[in-house]
Amino acid sequence: MSIDEACALVEREMPAKRWRHTLGVVESSVALAERFGADAEKARIAAILHDVAKFWPVEKQRQAILDDGDAAGLDTLLFDKELWHSHAGAFVARRDFGLDDAESLDAIRYHTSGRPGMTKLEKIVCLADYIEPGRDFPGVDALRKLSEKSLEEALVAGFDGTLRFLIEQGKRIYPLTVLTRNDLLTQIRPGGF
């Protein structure tokens, strides 16, 4: 499937505002890939597909996760539904779009929660989702500035903001996100805190 065909199909799956967000994530992913020496085409494809299932009914997302059978996806079913679309999206990217690159699929799968041992591509798509040009939340400019020098430092700051928000809202925290943050800190400061 060509990039143009994939774009046309993904655009149909979401409102216009989310499609603009997706295009911003594509732009930011490609820029980060070029800055940090990752595969820009893989970043482009994963970014195009990252929210393909975001606006599906939750039961359709749940069914995609069940059909996939991936343990990490099944685990998200015990937590906030906001996590589900990434795992459903990875399944759909493989099943419906023919994406068979494991790293790109994982970049889609973990763009909301992260995971310990994230690849560079996974970090790029996750961070691009935070900093794309259409995002406007307290601290986004600081994240963009951090993203100029370090994927890891910017992601820690992004996850810190997410964790604060979840705590303030009285929501449960997905443990993988905490483990991801801790893993990123050990990459920034190996052997010492």
Rank of each mutant, 00 (worst) to 15 (best):
Q61E: 10
E41C: 11
F36G: 01
Y174R: 04
E132G: 03
D4Y: 11
G73H: 02
A93H: 02
R94Y: 04
I45V: 15
D183M: 09
V92N: 02
Q169I: 07
L78R: 14
R135L: 00
L32K: 05
E122L: 03
M118D: 09
T119E: 11
L49F: 02
T112K: 15
R144T: 05
A88G: 01
D106L: 10
R181Y: 13
A72S: 04
L166S: 02
N182K: 15
D51F: 06
Y174D: 03
A8H: 07
A31I: 06
D129K: 09
F165T: 13
S104A: 15
E103W: 02
A154L: 02
S28A: 15
L78T: 10
R95V: 05
V92M: 09
P138W: 10
K42Q: 13
Y174A: 00
L49E: 02
L166H: 08
T180R: 12
L49K: 02
K42E: 05
E41Y: 14
A46L: 05
L146Y: 04
P57L: 10
R172P: 00
G69Q: 07
D106N: 14
I173M: 10
D80V: 04
K81E: 14
E122Y: 06
R164G: 00
A40Y: 04
W56T: 02
E103R: 08
K42A: 09
T162R: 15
G89T: 04
A157G: 00
R18D: 12
D39H: 08
